[in-house]
């Protein structure tokens, strides 16, 4: 029982981290109707900026405090992600207003390659460290109930809390602020939103900036956990089944989807894996998402698309 609970909790915490990356997809799709294939590349780019500046800044400014260096590096990384967002709008999206979804998807695919390449050229392709003081040692709980207790990874637990906070903030931003409502209006119909005076270019810059910040937070958490290197960009592939399951337009969907995928893949690996040779968690997540699609093509919380014929 204790082992089952450990696996379950481990899955839930991994799921929260997937949700964090999935949020980036949802944000941009919700606000601009673009399926942003570059989200993984943005996570890597943001994490690289954070890792390298936290390494360079102490040398440049003679700072000894890790905390100050991290705060400054975070600020620089935020500015960099804003510049990236602005450039994406100016150089790519502005020219593709009212184009087909597939065209926009291909554009983001191109953006992913450019960001991957530029990121590694500027910041390097080795493994870099982000040290934000996350605890690495495990903690044991319920030792009086279960023999040996239940192991909780403190780092994953804190990361899950940060992810939850970010999700709540974003939900409030979308539901309660004028900018949030404008973002939703743009997503519904570019032309209609423009006709009532919503500035499309400004809205797109805002949403890519928000997605950039989400990518930065995800990059810091995943980077602190795994080290900052190219594989971070593949984390986005782990978030794809999450958005399929949760629905591309729903922030709560990204969370629930993440939790289901996280738990599903961990339980499948532990309990089904030994019967089929193991190493099944990645494809199991996709299989779960595909089975879901058969019954609910719009995902758990996605909006049902009804077209008049």
């Amino acid at each position: 029982m204790a082992f089952f609970l450990e696996t379950l909790l481990g899955g839930l915490m991994s799921g929260m981290l997937y949700s964090l990356v999935a949020l980036g997809f949802v944000l941009i799709f919700k606000a601009s109707g673009v399926f942003n294939f570059a989200q993984g590349a943005m996570v890597l780019f943001a994490a690289l900026a954070m890792a390298r500046f936290s390494e360079w800044i102490p040398g440049w400014l003679g700072i000894e405090s890790l905390f100050v260096a991290n705060v400054l590096a975070f600020a620089v990384a935020v500015v960099i992600m804003f510049v990236v967002a602005w450039l994406i709008e100016r150089l790519a999206l502005r020219h593709l207003v009212n184009q087909e979804g597939a065209t926009l998807l291909m554009a983001t695919l191109g953006i992913a390659y450019v960001l991957d390449g530029i990121g590694q050229t500027i910041f390097g392709s080795a493994i870099y460290k982000i040290d934000v003081g996350m605890p690495k040692e495990p903690v044991m709980m319920l030792e009086s109930v279960f023999e040996g207790g239940i192991l909780i990874n403190k780092e994953d637990f804190i990361a899950a809390l940060i992810a939850a906070l970010l999700v709540i903030s974003l939900s409030i931003f979308f539901q309660k602020t004028a900018t949030g409502r404008a973002l939703r209006a743009v997503a519904d119909d570019h032309q209609a939103a423009q006709s009532i005076g919503i500035p499309l270019d400004r809205i797109w810059v805002i949403v890519w900036c928000v997605a950039g910040i989400t990518a930065l937070v995800a990059g810091i958490i995943w980077g602190s956990k795994l080290g900052v290197q190219f594989s971070l960009s593949t984390i986005a592939l782990r978030a794809l089944p999450v958005v399929i399951l949760g629905g591309l337009t729903s922030v709560p969907g990204a969370i629930i989807g993440g939790l289901i995928i996280g738990v599903g893949e961990k339980l499948s690996e532990v309990y089904l894996g030994p019967f089929v040779g193991g190493g099944i968690e990645i494809w199991f997540a996709y299989m779960l998402a595909l089975v879901f699609l058969l019954f609910r093509p719009q995902g758990l919380f996605g909006e049902k698309i009804i077209d008049r014929v």
Binding site: G11, T234, R238
Partner: peptide, 21 residues
């Protein structure tokens, strides 16, 4: 006991939970 890890190997939580067990 054989514990495969899928490429590129960034997700190993289930593997190490099995080792712990």
């Amino acid at each position: 006991s054989l514990l495969p890890v899928a490429h590129p190997g960034v997700e190993q939580k289930a593997t190490w939970l099995q080792i712990r067990q």
